[in-house]
Amino acid sequence: MQSRLDYFVPDGSYWPILGSIGMAALLGGFASSLHGSLVGTISMILGFGIIIFMVFGWIGQVIQESETGTYNLQVDKSFRIGMAWFIFSEVMFFAAFFGALFYARQLSVPWLAGEGNNLYTGEVLWPEFKSVWPLIQMPDASNFTVPKGIIEAWEIPAINTLTLLTSGATLTYAHWSLMNKNRSGLIGGLIATIILGIIFLGLQAFEYVEAYQHLDLKLTSGIYGSTFFMLTGFHGLHVTLGTIMLIAILMRAIRGHFKKDRHFGFEAVAWYWHFVDVVWLGLFIVVYWL
């Protein structure tokens, strides 16, 4: 390992531009697919594939650099700072969506029904409209899909909460095993966490099919449908990414990369998983309960 004074400069890499192309294809394709474009859907799938390829390729390169002793303490510090900024952006990301839900639910929908100093807004626009949440009866539903119901908190959401909470416990077991030099405990805990993550995603996919096919609860179901799918969908995307990262960490654990006193990769991914877990708990309470 080099000393802290040597500044590590990596070689030129094509991963960032590949990631950008994948992201553009994914998001552009997603936007187009919402408008019913087949090319958009293909582009979205292709973009997702490129991103997965980039994630594994880039992580693999970083692992290789780490294992060949290229990194020094200065690089270690920069990884930690990078992780801090990544977490900050994630907190802001979810704060924006929780904020949108709060704004719609506590402010804008009641205003449309005449609350606050908006008495005449209600009177002039939709005098019959009553502010309730979940907003199923929209004041003017002509441009929306009116849902027949909502997802019940005590069905899949509660099972999913239990699944994620258990995954937090199995990951903590893996963490303690790492600290206590119990390699089989580390690997077993990680495998259990990954399986629970996959179960969570499977159940959420099932919930979405149920919502779309039987309840008519869709992304086009007004402000309730939009906020519901945006919040739970982006959370699901984070669980997907977290599962992929855990698989990478499991591969490294099997190869014996982590030591009791050198395992920042594990710590970063573990913290991320705990963060995603806490976000779900917040979603479970705010979206399904309150």
Partner: peptide
Amino acid sequence: GDGSKRMVKALTLRV
């Protein structure tokens, strides 16, 4: 540093 147990203790509390 990576050898400290303070992080895993805090996460255990979180769970």
